[in-house]
Design a protein around this nucleic acid. Structure first.
Lengths: 118, 118
DNA sequence: GTCACCCTTCGAGTGCGCTCCAAGTCAAAT
DNA sequence: ATTTGACTTGGAGCGCACTCGAAGGGTGAC
């Protein structure tokens, strides 16, 4: 599929797709006879996972590290798992923190609702 | 209290405190006889709240808007409440999204633990 | 008094994650 | 044959939220 289709389906811009490829996040997207990118379904699944890492706050550099491990083959599986586990902890803490913050916001809003300046 | 003390207690850097004041997030911190900033307890409470807005992802521009409404006085309370309510929704959605993402991460990690490449 | 040190302002610089531009290629439509 | 439009690359630019540097001033210890 073309870069525009891949952009539409992944929710990323074509600019971003090229950028991701340039920095090594996506490896060797196929090209058609005229040198244009030709994305496969597997590329889209990988993009979807990358996007999930991004939206959960993983820095690009760390995503690159994960991508590189993946390219190196099955013997890097332990290292990849560890990377995901430590990210998992970050996400989990973030949820806990946001839940706390939400309570404070609710308290503030309640004060406003009851006409107390806060 | 000095800017260094305020920095230590707020967890922000002295640079950031000056920056926040410059862009109008903090209004008129007192000065001592030599022109140095002299933070009051109330400033710290305000900084704590600002920090909570920041860590929950409110853009600086919106925080400035809130700060300005606050300076304008009690008749802006409704508008401030609305601003907080809409932010509250953002935070709430973010928590829901992260909770979803956490499940996917757990699924991935489980796959790795059971030796499936994923 | 002079040294060290923290403060002041203003403006420039940084890092991240894109986002866009210029110059050129290619394929299909007219 | 030419126009249109999407694609290619490499590199420059941008927005955000800081972060730092330069130049100068005040205060306290020796």
């Amino acid at each position: 599929m073309t870069i525009q289709e891949a952009a539409r389906r992944s929710g990323l811009s074509a600019h971003t797709l090229r950028y991701y490829e340039r920095i090594g996040l996506i490896h060797s997207v196929g090209r058609n006879s005229s040198g244009h990118r030709d994305y496969a379904e597997e590329d889209l699944r990988w993009l979807e996972f990358l996007t999930r890492l991004r939206t959960t706050g993983m820095p690009i550099a760390e995503m690159c590290r994960y991508a590189e491990l993946r390219r190196r083959g099955p013997h890097t599986a332990d290292e990849r798992r560890e990377l995901l586990e430590s990210h998992r902890e970050r996400v989990s803490s973030r949820i806990a923190q946001l839940t706390q913050d939400l309570k404070v916001l609710d308290y503030k809003i309640d004060n406003y609702r009851e006409g107390r300046q806060s």
